[in-house]
Simulated assay, not measured.
Amino acid sequence: MSELSNSIILIGGGGHAKVLIELIKERGDYQIAGILDPKLEVGEQVKGVPVLGTDSELSRLQEQGVQNVAIAVGSVKSNLLRATLFEQCQELELNIPTLIHHRAIVSAEVVLSAGVQIMAGAIIQTDTTIGAGAVINTGAQVDHDCQIGNHAFLAPGVVLSGGVTVGDHSFVGTGAVVIQGVNIGEKAVIAAGAVVIQDVEDGALVKGVPAK
């Protein structure tokens, strides 16, 4: 394995990992050293990247010179696993870089925390803040003055109008639309295709048009 300081390990080898592999290879900022995933066999490959074992291998890989890691586990409603893995990597003092697809549009006035992932076609407008480990997925649109919490997950095609707040660990499903000024609480779930026109409480699940 390479001991270059720009090598990176992906934790997770599913569909989200495939998207990140292409993003990382196209940008060229990091060399992907391998994937850690308990559901895959050692030696198996995902888009040409070898599976090295489970996340229990992180300490050994770190000793060999790996300094960077990406949380490549996707999300369906719950973001707990992503957050847990993120915290484990922080405890090991590994770097969790922000990853932005070169075909995303991100205002220079956006504040990005550690480990944010922004996929192809996403648009993020001025004076928005995105918390640690959050994912802005393919084609999502985040307008001005939004606040996206830690480990929040915006699925493909989500549209947030100006001044929307998405709480920590919340999940906004594919194609959901949130009108301006709405506050989505922590650990809330917005179903795919929902149209949110009023605030959503912590831990709530809302769906439909308008979302209830």
Rank of each mutant, 00 (worst) to 15 (best):
K212A: 12
D29M: 12
G139L: 09
K187P: 00
E57C: 14
I123Q: 08
K47N: 15
I136M: 12
I32K: 03
I184H: 04
D202T: 06
A188T: 03
V195E: 04
S7R: 05
D29R: 12
K47T: 13
I123G: 06
G121D: 14
Q45R: 09
S107G: 10
A132M: 14
S7W: 06
E109P: 01
P97W: 11
G74W: 05
R27L: 13
V158G: 12
I11W: 00
F86L: 04
I118N: 07
S78T: 09
I71Y: 07
P156D: 04
G65S: 08
F171E: 01
V182H: 03
I118Y: 10
I148T: 02
H102W: 05
S5D: 08
E91Q: 07
A132W: 11
H102F: 15
H101M: 04
I24Y: 08
N137D: 02
L94N: 01
Q62S: 14
L112D: 00
V177Q: 15
A122G: 12
G139D: 01
H102L: 13
K18A: 14
A191C: 13
L154V: 12
N95E: 13
Q45I: 05
N68E: 00
G121K: 11
V209G: 08
I118K: 06
T54W: 03
V182A: 09
V42R: 06
I124F: 03
K187N: 07
L99S: 06
Q180P: 01
A114R: 02
E186C: 13
V106K: 05
I21F: 02
E44F: 14
I35V: 04
V164S: 06
Q45L: 08
